[in-house]
C-alpha cells in the first residue's frame, strides 16, 4: 500500500507498467522496481503529477469496464496492449479529465526511467535491466 494510491490503483499501475515493459525471462517493470521508482518520484520531482496519475488510473479502469466489463488489471495481455494503443491515439469511449495520449506518453517515459536508470533511483533492482542489455559497471 502507499499513501498515494489505493489498492485498486496500485493493481492498475502494476498492470500498466508490466504492459509497457513486460516480464519474460527477465523481470518486467514491476518486479524490477519501476513501481518503487515512480512512487518515490511522485513525492519528489513528479509530485505535481499525483492527481493526474490517479485520474489516469481511474479512467483506465473505467475504459476497461466500458469495453470489457472488468478492471484493466483483469484484462489479458493483448487486451491491455490494445487498450493502451487506443489511449495513445486518444481513441476513447469514456470521458477523460486529462489528455490521455499526452499523459500516457509521460508514463512511458517514467517507466523507461525507472527501468533503465541507476538502481539508486529506486528501480532497475540490483541492476537487472543493465544485466539484460549488457551494460556492466566495472569501475
Amino acid at each position: 500500500m502507499s499513501a498515494l494510491f489505493d489498492e485498486n490503483q496500485l493493481r492498475c499501475l502494476e498492470a500498466v507498467l508490466d504492459t509497457l515493459i513486460p516480464p519474460d525471462d527477465y523481470p518486467g517493470a514491476w518486479q524490477a522496481g519501476v513501481g518503487d521508482y515512480l512512487l518515490r518520484q511522485l513525492t519528489g520531482d513528479l509530485a505535481h503529477l499525483q492527481t493526474s496519475y490517479r485520474a489516469f488510473l481511474r479512467c483506465l479502469d473505467a475504459e476497461a469496464q466500458y469495453l470489457h466489463q472488468c478492471d484493466f488489471a483483469d484484462l489479458a495481455n493483448d487486451e491491455r496492449s490494445d487498450l493502451l494503443h487506443r489511449i495513445e491515439k486518444n481513441r476513447l469511449e469514456t470521458n477523460w479529465p486529462i489528455e490521455p495520449g499526452a499523459f500516457f506518453a509521460q508514463v512511458v517515459e517514467h517507466c523507461g526511467e525507472g527501468f533503465y536508470s541507476d538502481p539508486g533511483n529506486g528501480g532497475n533492482r540490483e541492476g537487472i535491466a543493465w544485466q539484460m542489455i549488457g551494460f556492466e559497471v566495472r569501475g
Partner: peptide, 18 residues
C-alpha cells in the same frame, strides 16, 4: 548510459513500449 540511450538515441521507428 542505458537511460541516455533510451532517452536520446532510441530509433524513432521502433516502438517505445511493449
Amino acid at each position: 548510459t542505458p537511460i541516455t540511450f533510451w532517452k536520446r538515441d532510441y530509433p524513432p521507428d521502433v516502438p517505445r513500449w511493449g
